[in-house]
Design a protein around this nucleic acid. Structure first.
Lengths: 141, 141
DNA sequence: TACAATAATGATAATTATTATCATTATCAA
DNA sequence: TTGATAATGATAATAATTATCATTATTGTA
């Protein structure tokens, strides 16, 4: 959290009560993937009249500073988690039944899948997206 | 397209004019990833007063029959593409600059990334999601 | 310390993609 | 042909997120 504070200070990002509350929620839920609404209700327990817009603004900013990692789940909703380390891969397993989200790490797709099988998961499908620049756009720079 | 027609017939899915229009749009755009709105406007050229609800309903149904593949892009919008073959992996490259979506195939994540590098892409990040059942839910069945 | 400039906030309106509703129209099977 | 069923289009509803804006808080400076 010292590293986080340093980063926020570097970027002259004021630590208001609302922002502290949100950060605390994220710290208390390390390893979990929270939706903006979940963060909102948890933050309300600490800072009772925080507004939902503030939650969205803060989550967005913290994600852009790479304090949080933002990822789309359930097709229509972002979830946020504390960014652990620099090269933390985001290989998620979503349970089609209970919705539980677990993280996995590893290098090989199929190796990964069989490892998950060994651990008792039943993998139905997967989706991989790369983000970057296509050859045309890459050349222009 | 014969295979598609067979599948639709099997599932007693009537081929109305509207549905034919949508299927034609998808066939003409093989390899591309179209949003529901894009399909809607293209379909209107063939079937002028088709409604957006019909487009959504049809795309959804065709995806559930695995005639189309449905995938979330841009964080908030689904895109649909014609499902080529059974074991077609969906490894997408999204250009952060122009938004172009290309498909890649291959087995190893890093091998893939370096192959993409060789082809002139600049990969910034990637995201992988598995869909399936977690050990607890898997056991219950 | 006072004060002007700037930043942050909360309430709420607006937006966007998608889904649900429902009256009307088309199709199928007897 | 007709009656049951399915499909459609218009549009209302929903859900997540973003934008707007008046109010409040904070900061740096005189």
């Amino acid at each position: 959290m010292d590293a986080i504070n340093a980063k926020l200070h570097e970027n002259s990002y004021r630590l208001t009560g609302q922002r502290k509350a949100i950060l605390n929620v994220m710290l208390e839920n390390q390893g979990r993937h929270l939706s903006a609404e979940e963060v909102f209700w948890e933050a309300r327990k600490i800072f009772p009249n925080i507004g939902i817009a503030t939650v969205y603004r803060t989550l967005e900013k913290l994600a852009s500073l790479e304090v949080l990692y933002k990822s789309m789940f359930e097709g229509n909703k972002y979830r946020y988690e504390l960014a652990e380390d620099e090269n933390h891969h985001h290989h998620h397993v979503l349970c089609l039944a209970c919705g539980q989200i677990s993280e996995v790490s590893g290098d090989l797709l199929h190796e990964l899948e069989s490892k998950l099988d060994e651990k008792g998961y039943k993998i139905i499908d997967h989706e991989l997206k790369f983000y970057g620049y296509c050859p045309a756009c890459n050349k222009e720079k």
